[in-house]
């Protein structure tokens, strides 16, 4: 099982398998995301406190979830690179970053738009919001570091270390509201506590939307890794031509 998992770290094998998977994942991402957002936007009632702004949850929560999950995936991929030197894992971390930064931006913007009528402010230096903003800056720094270094192995090493450091803020953006009993941001939207649970009419489309955003992430990372493998092959060909 373990040895078969590492077969996918071989770029040729990865290209074969991902090429077969990609149309299905991309199709499912489109259908499930559209279903979740249409359900949430058109077929859910207003909340008795939030009114129609409750519909923002169907873009805000899935984006925030993927902003954190993308960084966790980058951390795991970076650790695999650092420990086992599998190039595909380093490229997977690189490919996940643009998706993660976009998800973070969506979460920050949609949260601000929701916050203005509900909290009376677009922004507050609340623990979760601040941790999210720092996570956003870490994403930008991570991508800038990849772009700044010519040697891909050195870039993978250094961005791997940056990813480890940034993980503190990824965790804080998830758990900050539990660490500190202060700030405007409420607790988990999908609490398991019976009294705090979101009503099922909102929870079901939210689950669908979250699944859709997850599939978008997987599809885009697969495309991104395939692109990075091709770019790497191109660099190798250029080097070979120069040496010939």
């Amino acid at each position: 099982m373990a040895s078969s998992m590492w077969e996918y770290a071989n770029p040729t094998r990865f290209m074969q398998v991902s090429g077969r998977l990609l149309p299905w994942v991309a199709g499912a991402a489109l259908v499930v995301t559209a279903a979740g957002l249409i359900w949430g936007f058109f077929f859910t009632p207003d909340d008795f406190r939030q009114g129609a702004t409750v519909k923002i949850v169907f873009v805000h929560v899935p984006a925030a979830m993927m902003a954190i999950n993308a960084w966790v995936m980058m951390l795991v991929a970076s650790l695999i690179w650092i420990v086992r030197r599998h190039h595909v894992s380093a490229l997977a971390a690189k490919a996940a970053a643009p998706v993660g930064v976009t998800m973070t931006a969506i979460a920050l913007i949609s949260g601000g738009i929701w916050g203005q009528p509900m909290w009376g402010t677009w922004w507050a230096w609340d623990p979760r919001l601040t941790a999210f903003l720092i996570l956003f800056l870490f994403y930008l720094g991570y991508m800038a570091l990849w772009a700044a270094l010519d040697d891909p192995d050195t870039a993978a090493d250094l961005t791997g270390v940056l990813c480890l450091v940034g993980s503190v803020f990824a965790l804080m953006s998830r758990y900050a509201v539990n660490f500190w009993s202060q700030g405007l941001h409420q607790g988990a939207s999908l609490s398991v506590q019976p009294g705090e649970r979101m009503d099922i009419v909102f929870r079901m489309p939210l689950y669908v939307s979250m699944t859709g955003f997850g599939l978008i992430f997987v599809a885009l990372v697969l495309i991104g890794v395939r692109t990075e493998i091709r770019a790497r092959r191109m660099r190798a060909l250029v080097m070979r031509e120069r040496m010939a």
Partner: peptide
Amino acid sequence: YTAEVLGAYAAALGLLGALVGGV
């Protein structure tokens, strides 16, 4: 809250569209 809800969806879908297009 028409402007807020539509604004949030427009921003989210616009950013997602730009990301998918760019990739």
